[in-house]
Write a protein that binds this DNA or RNA. Structure first.
Length: 511
RNA sequence: GAUCCCGUAGCUCAGCUGGUUAGAGCAUUUGACUUUUAAUCAAAGGGUCCUGGGUUCGAAUCCCAGCGGGAUCACCA
């Protein structure tokens, strides 16, 4: 306590806390019997039969208070919204006297009857009032005004993004509308889970701590296990473990969980992020494309109650079927050049010609990738499957059944961003070994994001992976699209932040 | 990692061409008010102007460094 510096408002609230206890009022009781949520009352009240709500109890945080001597109006906020409470000295007696010790931010329970005020607002006339939690720290609450068209205008609400991300609980109190994003996020995930469960696929859990990381090209987080005295990696993908389960005889497995990548942070990247990966035996990437569009169509319909979604001013349609295009056809269309079968040098010259900046030492794969992301990707606004990638870009995908040099892979793009990635999984063990050894060579040549050879994974493939289709979906980006947010930080409760340097000197340290 | 912008009361922000004692609204405290709603009216308290150096008679203001944040770019999903 002694290390905590408190301002006058906090000191005053602590005094009030002591005074409440002196008066025999427990500021932190164990529970409260609540019968109604705010929104429920507002939507069921009728002026014809107010008696239906003649005795209700609500609980919530005091967000606004208007004292008028012997009567007070305040608004409390629960998970569903706000409702006005009317407190009158005549009805409450001593309790009304004690109400002077209550502040904005306190959590209270109120029992009473519902009525409509002279100004027309449905309100709860209190018969009893119970303090449920005393708030010691003033909360950054803006006043709010409901305009005539029903829109809520907030004044002075918490706006500093650092505060909002670091102290999300304050953000949620002051800006309750952001709850909708997180509620929608939960609904998207449960809708996806239901889609898979309904088809008989099994939700599984595979290791996050891995002795060898794989399944993607990325730098890992490294940690140490004391008992075994070994380095372990936080997974960058769960692909290699899920495929082992298909080898073991499961015919459909999926996992929704965090991956960790030790790379930069920006609007679309957080070091830990949520991915869904699914593998289904005896299927190929064409089947997976159909499954993917059906799944997304089903989620969007369920969560957004429409196949159309507005994102940053653009109307996106998830109506079936989604557009499909082969990667090299898109190059034809958007660059006017045929890039099929070109050597690294020819690609480099073409990139220069197209004014796409690439390093002169870049690999053929990197050059293609760069041309694609600069000249093609921005055009893929409506959901579009891009199919048939060059083999070099996809060391875990099966060689194309017809076109040499390509693999059976697709990615789904929406608003120019990649949302999903899928292959017919490579199950030829000799091909797989050769591809991973290529990766090891690229790695030895200095690209520390290239894949590491996982001998046990190769062993599993040698035992026999049936024909299998696999799909990965970036959940955070999907949520961004469906909640109209343009920063990943707004769809994560607690985005990664640099640790606060001053934290050790301030309030949290002692408790 | 690079560049640009920002950091002033619990919250939102003014002040910044250097010049008395750093301001406003909300919040807080005291008083008035029994249907208010950004309640109103009267008064009061509240500041490490991010931190540390420097320039100057004098720095919230100018300069340097650091810390923290935001935006853009590069790598990645």
């Amino acid at each position: 306590m002694s290390s905590v510096s408190r301002n006058d408002q906090e000191l005053h609230r602590i005094e009030e806390l002591h005074e409440l206890r002196t008066l025999g009022i427990e500021p932190f009781p164990a529970s409260f019997d609540r019968t109604h949520h705010a929104q429920h009352i507002l939507s069921t009240f009728s002026d014809e039969s107010p008696d239906v709500l003649a005795s209700v109890s609500v609980a919530g945080r005091i967000m606004a208070m208007r004292k008028m001597g012997k009567a007070t109006f305040c608004h409390i906020q629960d998970v569903t919204g706000r409702i006005q409470i009317y407190l009158k000295k005549d009805d409450l007696g001593d309790v009304y006297e004690n109400f002077r010790l209550f502040d904005i931010g306190d959590i209270i329970g109120v029992e009473g009857f519902v009525f409509r005020t002279r100004m027309g607002e449905i309100s709860l006339h209190a018969r009893t009032l119970t303090l449920l939690t005393k708030c010691i720290t003033p909360i950054p609450v803006g006043k709010e005004e409901v305009a005539e068209d029903g829109t809520v205008v907030r004044y002075d609400a918490i706006a500093d993004k650092e505060q909002r991300y670091r102290r999300r609980y304050l953000d949620l109190i002051a800006n309750p509308q952001i709850k909708d994003t997180f509620i929608k996020r939960a609904r998207i995930i449960s809708s996806m889970r239901r889609f898979f469960d309904d088809r008989g696929w099994l939700e599984v859990e595979t290791p996050i701590l891995q002795p060898i990381y794989g399944g993607a090209t990325a730098r890992p987080f490294v940690t140490h296990h004391n008992a075994l005295d070994v380095e372990l990696y936080l997974r960058i993908a769960d692909e290699l473990y899920l495929k082992r389960l298909i080898v073991g005889g499961f015919e459909g497995v999926y996992e929704i969980s965090k991956n960790f990548r030790n790379e930069g942070m920006d609007k679309t990247h957080n070091p830990e992020y949520t991915a869904m990966e699914i593998y289904v035996a005896y299927k190929d990437y064409i089947w997976m494309m159909e499954m993917t569009e059906e799944m997304l169509h089903s989620i969007v319909t369920e969560v957004c109650s429409s196949v159309e979604v507005e994102y940053q001013g653009t109307a996106l349609s998830f109506a079936l079927p989604f557009a499909r295009a082969r990667m090299f056809d898109l190059f034809d269309e958007h660059t006017g050049k045929n890039l099929r079968g070109l050597s690294r040098e020819q690609l480099l010259a073409t990139a220069r010609e197209l004014n796409v900046g690439v390093d002169s030492t870049a690999s053929a794969m990197k050059i293609l990738d760069e041309i694609f992301s600069v000249l093609v990707q921005p055009h893929l606004i409506q959901p579009t499957f891009v199919m048939d990638y060059p083999v070099e870009m996809s060391p875990l995908a099966k060689a194309h059944r017809i076109e040499k040099g390509l693999v059976e892979r697709f990615e789904l793009f929406v608003m120019g961003k990649e949302i999903a990635n899928a292959f017919s999984e490579l199950n030829d063990p000799l091909d797989q070994r050769a591809r991973l050894e290529d990766q090891a060579q690229i790695r030895a040549d200095g690209d520390d994001e290239a894949m590491v050879v996982d001998e046990d994974f190769l062993h599993a493939i040698e035992v026999g992976l049936p024909p299998t289709a696999g799909l990965g979906v970036g959940i955070d980006r999907l949520v961004m699209l469906l909640t109209n947010n343009d920063s990943i930080r707004d769809v994560l409760f607690f985005p990664q932040m640099r640790p606060e340097k001053s934290a050790s000197n301030t309030a949290e340290s002692g408790e």
